[in-house]
Amino acid sequence: MDLQRLEGILSRYACQPADLIPVLQDIQDSYNYLPKDELKVVAERLHLPLAQVFSVATFFTMFSLVPKGKHVCKVCVGTTCHLKGGQRLAESLSNRLGVDIGYTTKDMNFTLETVACLGSCAQAPVMMIDDTYYARVTVDKVPKILKKYQ
């Protein structure tokens, strides 16, 4: 366990129970997931039962207990994107990447996720790879977009 890295994160907080979610967010950002050993330390330092830390870590969708891929592809399946084919877009990506929604490719390059709404409904269907938005993504545009990340 990289204790120094974890201490760096914890040192930014007063380590009150209310700091749990921001601390987990920082760990998720830094490690790309929430490693088990680190969660044990967090529980100890924030004076919380480990069960509560795990309940929070598993309740919210942004947290992952397994490492995510180098690129995270989020396909919007909000209402407008659903009507305009967001679900089919997600299925097409799933076929092309050979990975189920919510999982990571074997080479750890892509994690494929769906998200309830990215708030760019006027450009539906929308998807986001890392911090880049892609507007009006029809299935036929997928191969060209994926190429940039492979």
């Binding site: 009150q16 700091d19 749990l20 921001p22 919210f60």
Partner: peptide
């Protein structure tokens, strides 16, 4: 600022408050 962590139910006020307190929403 308190950042959400991806849960629709946290738009409900009591769930949102629980989330700021570091609990599940």
């Amino acid at each position: 600022i308190s950042q959400g962590a991806g849960a629709f139910v946290c738009g409900e006020e009591t769930a949102l408050i629980a989330s700021i307190e570091g609990k599940i929403g």
